[in-house]
Nucleic acid binder design. Structure first.
Lengths: 190, 190
DNA sequence: TAAATTATTGAATCTAAATTCAACAAACTG
DNA sequence: CAGTTTGTTGAATTTAGATTCAATAATTTA
């Protein structure tokens, strides 16, 4: 099975490289040749592993979806909603340095949701219910009295849009320090 | 001079159409033929008015820069910083319905600042000092005691990233209601 | 070890989309 | 009005970049 494993490793290497470049330069500005050169491997070979650039994006997103399940799958939150979200952001921001790929994955997932991204990948990214998940969490927080009144879904959307915007900014400018997570959670806090 | 005016009108029509499409579908996914068809005019004619797609983007951004001067040019803010920013967001969000083009312009200006956008247009968009302007405003707010402590520039960056993220979300999904501006200003508020 | 399978390359092909162009129409100028 | 300038079209050209392919090397299987 060494051969199959080898192939898996290679695929993963390509996926990771693609992830990095997609976030660094944007999907459309990242050429297949850029990815191949960065792996490194010949352009031709890349198509031995992935059908097309779109499929490549799709699989990167697929990988992100897997990873996200762990997050949106949690059903019992044992701490107050504000504490949970602050902790989440804290971790996410520290990932920016320790595990850039986790961080980049989040950034990419957000970007792929936008209009103008390849349709299949977009649908897949959109299928992750992080907005809904957080909306529920926000409702919980409202009941707990820590979050302000207002449509939980709209609050959730704002929260994520802000997080997305800030993460993109961080991905764009590596000099940027991570903000204090409480600043962002303040959007929700009463 | 009717001829010259005519030409100006036409140019403006193209610029506006391009602005709308760039925001709606993204720069790279907007084809020159899309713009021409939407104006409407033949593809060829479009090049009678603009050198290239990049130049077209550049001029849209140019227009945005002009418009933004009015905003960042203000030197005397007569009201507390938090009130000023809340009012600003309030206006911006209501523009989304009344004057979509103003709103779209803001969204586009933010997008063009990102890596992977055509270099010249990007530089131009980056030349607008809205982050610095707001940073000063935030310092003022800190002195007034209404804003939290923290690096004003980082706070400013977060503020704008959030606004950008939310405006993009609004541009993407017309059903989305505008959030309460105070939610966003809460990022800054003590 | 010989056949079969898989990895690899880089140049050749294909394709979508930007850009140019030749031709014609309308408007303006003197 | 005759000529010149500007507007307009859509098809032809060009080009950047994705995708294919024929050829070769490495690895596995039997």
């Amino acid at each position: 099975m060494t051969r199959k494993e080898q192939k898996e490793e290679r695929r993963k290497a390509i996926l990771m490289t693609a992830l990095t470049l997609f976030v660094e330069k944007g999907y459309y500005d990242t050429k297949i040749t850029d990815i191949a050169a960065a792996v490194p491997m010949s352009t031709g070979l890349l198509f031995h592993y992935f059908e097309s650039k779109e499929e490549l994006l799709y699989e990167v997103v697929q990988m992100g979806v897997e990873g996200t399940k762990a997050f949106t799958g949690v059903s019992e939150i044992p701490v107050p909603a504000d504490v949970y979200l602050t902790g989440f952001l804290n971790q996410m921001f520290s990932f920016a340095k320790d595990q850039p790929w986790v961080f980049n994955m989040f950034v990419l997932m957000g970007q792929v949701r936008r209009k103008g991204m390849p349709e299949e990948a977009r649908r897949l990214a959109l299928s992750v219910g992080s907005i809904d998940f957080t909306a529920k969490l926000i409702e919980k927080g409202q009941e707990e009295g820590v979050f302000r009144e207002g449509d939980p879904r709209l609050l959730s959307t704002c929260f994520w849009a802000s997080v997305q915007g800030i993460m993109e900014e961080m991905a764009m400018d590596s000099r940027m320090k991570a903000p204090d997570p409480r600043w962002i959670v303040a959007i929700l806090r009463k």
